[in-house]
Simulated assay, not measured.
Amino acid sequence: MSDLDQLRTDLLAAVDSAEGLDALDAVRVQALGKSGTVTGLLKTLGGMSPEQRQSEGPRIQGLREAVADAIATRRDALERAALDARLASETLDMTLPVDAVAAGGVHPVSQVMDELAEIFADLGFAVATGPEIEDDWHNFTALNIPETHPARAMHDTFYLAGDHERPMVLRTHTSPVQIRAMKAAGGTQPVRIIAPGRTYRSDSDATHTPMFHQVEGLVIDKGITLGHLKWTLETFLKAFFERDDIVLRLRPSYFPFTEPSAEVDVGYTVINGKRVIGGDPSQGEGGWMEVLGSGMVHRKVIAAGGYDPDQWQGFAFGCGIDRLAMLKYGMDDLRAFFDGDLRWLKHYGFGALDVPTLSGGVGA
């Protein structure tokens, strides 16, 4: 009995005096390991008589539990002390500036394309696409542009070299999508689409680039008039510029694929020396700015799309997406859209998570 009491005292003292986790683990192995002193005492229970096991077993088991509990308590104390020492030695200066995280942005052209899709979706238009490498039938002939038309000249159009069944070009406008959309409808269903995308012409200055973006709209149905065209454009421009005081002026013009044709001007006013879209120019300082080309679809174009021009009518319109972005967001040089200058994009671009949305829509 005195031997067990002395062993308990010695082991508990060794646990309390362990100054580190390694020293404490050594005490654990010495007492409770496979060859430990307490483990050895437990093994002797098998050779005792039932009376001896009944009296000695609880004492030895009690010794084992006391040592195990002491080791667990000491381990917690040592771990807390080690953490406190680490926290005391490791400091973080919260006054230092945080390194900026690189973030992408939405290009103004992409933003305007999203806005266009949103507006025209509310008006019942679908988005249609087509190839950027076109044959000259879709790009010119089907749109009533004869072989002698200046738009076919080499200085305007990029022609592709090689042997082809038809001459191939980089499309000069997104109007070929109109023909493809009509063909897909089979000449029996109404068509209401917009066709945004890249186009190509041999031109470059502050307001022109060899590659630029256009959006065209097409409506084919029965009983379509110029009144439908004017209302659609007025509703679109009010929603896009988010102003109810948009004033339009339609000027007679000429496009081979529409008849009659009209250039669409929008009124602007001058505020603090800058042109601002909106307001009636006749009521003060301001003027007119051309933003769109439009007209009633030519009979030959309707026929080329597979429709009977005696039964079906339609209107079409088109404008430069890059120009719309310049007008709405105050940019003055089209070439900067394609320079790849990150400083420009940071200034004019839109955060991926906080791009502006159209507050008014077209429901008003």
Rank of each mutant, 00 (worst) to 15 (best):
A304D: 09
G330T: 06
F140T: 08
T129P: 02
D10A: 15
M94W: 09
F240M: 06
T148N: 14
R86P: 00
H347R: 11
L233G: 05
L218N: 08
Q30P: 00
G340V: 14
A77R: 13
V27F: 06
H149S: 00
G186F: 07
R86F: 14
M296E: 00
M154H: 14
M168W: 06
E79P: 03
Y254T: 13
E147T: 14
A26C: 11
G197W: 01
A14S: 15
E90P: 05
R75N: 04
L11N: 03
T188I: 12
E134C: 10
A239R: 03
T235H: 01
G360N: 12
R64E: 15
A184E: 07
R64M: 09
A206S: 10
T148W: 12
T148Q: 15
D22K: 15
V98G: 10
L358S: 05
I194A: 08
K43L: 08
M168D: 07
K230W: 04
V109C: 07
D341A: 09
M48T: 03
P356Q: 04
Q311N: 07
T172L: 06
D136M: 04
F315T: 00
R299I: 10
A23Y: 13
G20N: 14
H138P: 01
A336Q: 08
V106C: 11
K34D: 15
A128T: 04
A184C: 01
R198S: 13
R335L: 07
P146N: 09
Q61V: 11
D308T: 12
A161P: 07
H298C: 08
V270L: 08
E56L: 11
F255M: 08
D156A: 14
H149L: 05
G187L: 00
L4W: 01
V191R: 01
D280V: 13
R198P: 15
L345Q: 14
S89H: 04
S261T: 14
G267W: 09
T157P: 00
A85K: 08
V109P: 03
L96R: 14
A206L: 10
M94S: 09
V109Q: 06
S282E: 15
A117V: 11
D205Q: 10
V101S: 09
H213V: 13
S282L: 15
V215E: 02
A128D: 12
A364P: 07
M168K: 03
E165V: 12
E263K: 09
G186N: 01
F350R: 06
D122F: 10
D69I: 11
P256Q: 06
Q61H: 06
A72K: 12
V106M: 10
R152A: 01
E165H: 05
F257Q: 04
D3Y: 09
A195M: 07
K300N: 14
F140S: 04
E19F: 07
E65K: 13
E19C: 13
S35F: 05
Y268N: 05
A70V: 07
A66V: 06
W344H: 11
Q61C: 00
T148Y: 14
S2G: 13
K43S: 10
S175M: 01
